[in-house]
């Protein structure tokens, strides 16, 4: 079996026992990307360092109780604008959590690189790259960002830090996907990801740029060519909803979204959501425990009892399940068919 996932050194059984937390340390950002889920009403309040440590300890107790490991992806906004980011990452590291950083790469200084090297359980640093050419990337992320972003990825490589890139695909950069895949191959990025754009926050303004089901299928087919070409060299993020619909014989594809199943999102003020683009608060860790939110949230129960929704009746329900946030963005309902589902296109 081809082990196409971001933990090549961990067995598939162990991967199932990793709880994933996306922790937004801040909403502050040095960019204003067109497709971002942030809006003008973003949360200004931030947990202080002691509150963060308290929540981290609670999370440790939770995953230990479950017999799980935990990966925390520190994100934002731009996580590196928060001056205590390293203290937070190091604390999580000392608790034994896997740590990853999701960044735009623009603040990747020597000091940052040096600090990253001190995080023992660092899995990777993911840099957002929305084009394979400066024109496309900068149309989305702003002038003068492309070269610095590329330099940051190369700098991670030079320093022996696992690099990842994420390309959020929509009609503005769809045709540049091939350039992105070629570029990441040329640089030797360790883990390459293509994520679907979900219209929310500021990104609402470009709602019309969501790919059709046909275009989504074309996107995945193109990525699949690179998956096969670079097998054993580059890992591609294919364990996601819809991939299984490619009907490919390749084994390492397809997977349900972890939101509410074995993952959650924490916002800068301690609010908890199944995932950021879903936009529904299910609790707050300043005054609730993880256990309370996890076991008593009505929305989480609904996500887990997935046979109740449209996608639950599909033959691929266990390895797909669609993107709930995208369904909500289109139909105001999490539990209807993913608008980019290409099962019908296949017929």
């Amino acid at each position: 079996m081809i082990n196409n996932q971001k933990y090549p050194d961990i067995s598939p059984e162990e991967i199932k026992k990793i709880f994933r937390v996306q922790w937004h340390l801040t909403e502050r950002c040095n960019l204003k990307c067109l497709h971002c889920y942030q809006d003008e009403l973003c949360i200004k309040e931030e947990l202080d360092i002691e509150e963060i440590k308290k929540i981290a300890n609670m999370l440790k107790k939770t995953v230990d109780r479950w017999g799980f490991k935990c990966e925390i992806s520190l994100t934002g906004g731009e996580p590196l604008v928060r001056k205590e980011w390293f203290e937070i990452a190091k604390y999580l590291d000392q608790l034994g959590f896997y740590v990853s950083i999701l960044s735009n790469g623009l603040l990747m200084s020597r000091e940052v690189i040096s600090n990253l090297k001190k995080i023992n359980h660092l899995r990777y640093v993911q840099i957002s790259l929305d084009g394979g050419s400066p024109e496309v990337h900068e149309k989305i992320r702003g002038k003068g960002t492309f070269n610095k972003t590329i330099e940051s990825i190369k700098s991670l490589k030079r320093n022996g830090i696992k690099s990842a890139t994420k390309f959020t695909v929509h009609k503005l950069n769809f045709l540049d996907l091939i350039n992105y895949l070629n570029l990441t191959e040329q640089i030797g990025v360790d883990f390459v990801s293509v994520a679907r754009y979900i219209p929310s926050g500021r990104g609402e303004k470009i709602r019309d740029f969501v790919l059709t089901a046909e275009e989504t299928k074309e996107t995945y087919q193109l990525v699949m060519k690179f998956v096969k070409k670079n097998e054993g060299k580059i890992l591609y993020d294919t364990r996601r909803p819809l991939w299984i619909l490619l009907n490919d014989q390749y084994v390492g594809i397809g997977g349900r979204c972890v939101a509410g199943i074995n993952g959650l999102t924490i916002l800068p003020n301690g609010d908890v959501l199944p995932c950021r683009p879903m936009g529904v608060k299910i609790g707050n860790l300043r005054n609730q425990t993880f256990f309370e939110i996890w076991y008593t949230s009505d929305l989480l129960w609904k996500i887990r009892n997935f046979h109740d929704w449209s996608c639950g009746k599909c033959q691929f329900s266990r390895t797909c399940g669609g993107c709930l946030a995208l369904s909500k963005a289109f139909y105001q309902d999490f539990f209807v068919q993913d608008p980019q589902c290409f099962k019908e296109v296949n017929k």
Partner: peptide, 24 residues
């Protein structure tokens, strides 16, 4: 402790949870 009937499922299932210790 919290007690609940599991929603969104045909079968009747009931749970008791210790939200501090995680006992279910």
């Amino acid at each position: 402790f919290r007690f609940l009937q599991e929603p969104y499922i045909l079968e009747e299932r009931f749970w008791l949870v210790n939200i501090e210790e995680g006992d279910v």
